[in-house]
């Protein structure tokens, strides 16, 4: 299952937390989301350690980045539910 396709079909969306969220649990979507989020948390931890700031700080900055970079029409969660950008 390709991440871009999942986004364009509205099955997954980016969240202010810096992580992917499941919107529609179609086949394989949950597995994809977990896989991507696991990779992200590793990278966030490395970034936090390298710059000696907290993981939450990195997640907050990442949250803004992923929402900013979301293509128009895809789904985002700013804290109170899924929205179309």
């Amino acid at each position: 299952l390709d991440l871009d396709a999942a986004k364009d079909n509205g099955w997954v969306g980016e969240r202010y937390t810096g992580y992917l969220g499941v919107v529609k649990p179609e086949a394989g979507v949950k597995a994809l989301v977990d896989e991507v989020n696991n990779k992200r948390v590793q990278v966030y931890k490395k970034l936090a350690a390298k710059n000696n700031i907290s993981l939450q700080e990195v997640e907050k900055l990442a949250g803004k980045k992923v929402i900013e970079k979301t293509r128009p029409g895809n789904l985002i969660d700013l804290g109170n539910g899924w929205l179309k950008k």
Binding site: V43, L47, N51, E57, V58, L61, K65
Partner: peptide, 11 residues
Amino acid sequence: VKVDKELEQMF
């Protein structure tokens, strides 16, 4: 600013 740049590349 630095972390923002690194995230930019990452994504």
